[in-house]
């Protein structure tokens, strides 16, 4: 074996240089003091009582820095649209049907579907009380559909319903942001009642659970669409081109 062919000198020098650079940056970071100022995270934690959400992370994500979350939802939406735009060219209609894997696998995955979706919904609506929330719950819901696709490649999702869920939840989210302007004179104001006494209840925290439920629906439908596009891409390659 020729070592020079496997590992050219150029690569060795480059990797040594880059690791030296990385180490020097890490070394620089180690000797820096980071407690010059009180950081804004601590202040948010102290302010958390105002929002009456038991989970402080949630109140930062959906309220204190709520417009960032609108942006994140938009980023995910754009990514989904991008995947759809790029993959819709290669996907054509194809009537070939693959033989089902096995009855037990299929029936079992359908049984599990409701449990997984229920778990996802639980994570979404308890976002302001326990760890989790719209993004995490939405992805859990999408895994339920991934399971269905793996068990039965012939399955098709109803795009009408998914688009409806996605568009309406997104539009309602934007409207919630704008309603805050009219009711509280500040965009994304917490215009629903949120008494501190209700902390820890399922209905508490004003708009926070509403926002997380909307985000959950949106993320769930978008992730399902992405999963479908990727699974079908393989499916068309294997089944229709064969």
């Amino acid at each position: 074996m020729n070592l020079k062919k496997v590992l050219p000198l150029k690569h060795i020098v480059l990797s040594l240089l880059s690791s030296a650079l990385l180490l020097s940056v890490v070394g620089l970071l180690m000797q820096v003091k980071t407690d010059m100022f009180k950081n804004v995270g601590t202040i948010y934690l102290n302010l958390n009582m105002q929002t009456a959400a038991a989970n402080a992370v949630t109140s930062v994500v959906t309220f204190f820095r709520g417009i960032d979350t609108v942006g994140e939802v938009t980023v995910l939406f754009l990514a989904t649209s991008g995947v759809a735009l790029m993959l819709s060219a290669t996907q054509r209609t194809c009537d070939k049907v693959v033989k089902q894997e096995s009855f037990i696998l299929n029936a079992g995955s359908r049984l599990l579907l409701s449990v997984i979706i229920l778990f996802g919904v639980y994570i979404i609506i308890h976002g302001h009380l326990s760890p989790g929330g719209g993004f995490q719950g939405g992805v859990v819901i999408a895994t339920a559909f991934l399971l269905l696709f793996l068990a039965n490649p012939n399955m098709k999702l109803s795009h009408g319903i998914l688009t409806l869920g996605e568009s309406l939840s997104g539009a309602t989210y934007v409207l919630v942001v704008i309603i805050g302007l009219f009711k509280m004179n500040i965009l994304l104001g917490n215009f629903l009642p949120h008494p501190i006494g209700e902390i820890g209840e399922l209905i508490s925290g004003g708009i926070i659970p509403v926002v997380y439920i909307l985000v959950g629906i949106k993320v769930g439908s978008e992730m399902s669409v992405i999963v479908e596009y990727f699974v079908k891409e393989d499916y068309y390659k294997e089944v229709c081109d064969a």
């Binding site: 417009i67 939406f77 688009t163 539009a171 934007v174 409207l175």
Partner: peptide, 17 residues
Amino acid sequence: SLGYYFLLPVLFSFLTP
């Protein structure tokens, strides 16, 4: 409000279908 510069296009994009 200045927020509309971002919110209106987002609303439009979500409703595009």
